[in-house]
């Protein structure tokens, strides 16, 4: 612990002055919007028209409407599927696989492999989406169609025929590195001696993994699952760029739903009610995450 206790009033003033600009910035543009979402969700605030200038308090009407809105529940279910399939299953498995294989010290070309895997994560999401726009291009010249064309399967309109599967795969692609970085650090922390001891006792790679490695890194796994669930719930640009929620709403995740209600149908109040539901989910997971981290730091 390097910090010294503040006692004198002059010092107190100094500390407050140093911290204030950052806290004001954070409070106005990050915390206030979250609080404001609750306030707006209780009104009929709109983006244009009379309700934009003088919104009325409507109580829980927006929430009642939300509860009877099938589209809302459908978007919530889509988000859950998206998180589960792309983050919890896809990214975890492939990211762990990458970290595990790259952990072999005799492996050559490690730098090249990890650079390739990192690339999808580090580029801006609009570039990532554009790259997949070309991959999934519906004509026979699209990259994916050329690949499946080798087996004689006719051109597929990927984003129209398999919209959900497409965005899941794109998001797995983007997030493998995220899992890989976390898992690589966790695997590194497993004492080599333990694995060697298991080896001497005749344990196979699979047995070592199951009885030595996994139990030792389960904290890192939990941390990753929480983090990726939180961030994947918030994914908007990657999906919206590619499909704009379509076709026929089939890729309208909760985030896309909130955006559409607020800025396409101009109902800020109703959109904010949906946003509050999302905030509740994410902050719940976030509290758990911070508590985990707090135990560590």
């Amino acid at each position: 612990m390097i910090a010294r206790r503040v006692r004198r009033p002059r010092e107190r003033l100094l500390v407050a002055g140093l911290v204030a600009p950052a806290l004001v910035l954070l409070a106005v543009f990050v915390v206030l919007p979250a609080v404001w979402a609750v306030a707006i969700s209780l009104t009929n605030q709109a983006l244009t028209g009379v309700d934009a200038r003088s919104p009325r308090f409507v109580g829980l009407a927006n929430y009642q409407r939300l509860l009877s809105d099938d589209d809302f529940f459908a978007s919530l279910a889509r988000s859950a599927t998206f998180v589960f399939a792309s983050a919890i299953v896809g990214q975890s498995l492939l990211g762990f696989l990458a970290a595990f294989l790259l952990g072999d010290r005799r492996l050559r070309g490690k730098g090249l492999f990890s650079a390739a895997i990192l690339l999808p994560l580090v580029v801006p999401e609009t570039v990532a989406a554009l790259a997949w726009a070309s991959m999934t291009a519906p004509s026979e010249f699209g990259t994916l169609n050329r690949l499946v064309g080798l087996t004689g399967i006719g051109p597929i309109r990927w984003l129209q025929e398999y919209p959900m599967a497409s965005i899941v795969i794109v998001n797995i692609w983007r997030g493998i590195a995220f899992a890989m970085v976390l898992f690589a650090a966790a695997l590194e922390s497993v004492p080599r001696e333990l694995l060697e001891a298991a080896q001497v006792d005749g344990a196979s790679v699979r047995q070592q993994l199951r009885h030595v490695t996994l139990p030792l890194i389960k904290y890192a796994i939990l941390l990753f699952l929480l983090l990726t669930t939180i961030t994947t719930f918030g994914v908007f640009g990657l999906v919206y760029f590619l499909t704009r929620g379509g076709p026929a709403g089939s890729t309208t995740l909760l985030t896309v739903y909130i955006y559409e209600q607020s800025f396409r149908f101009f109902e800020l109040g109703f959109g904010s009610a949906a946003a509050v539901v999302m905030l509740a989910i994410v902050l719940g997971l976030g509290l758990f995450y911070v508590r985990l981290l707090r135990a560590q730091i």
Binding site: L26, V28, F29, V30, V31, L32, P33, A34, W36, A37, A39, I40, Q45, I230, T231, F233, G234, V235, F236, T255, I258, Y259, S262, F263, L268, G271, S272, A275, M278, L279, V282, L283, L285, G286, L287, Y289, V290, L293, R294
Partner: peptide
Amino acid sequence: FGILLTRVIPPSATIAPLYAIT
């Protein structure tokens, strides 16, 4: 830790009130 917790607030959830505030 409060500051860290704000990190989990997805901009995609608070975008409507953020627009209203700005």
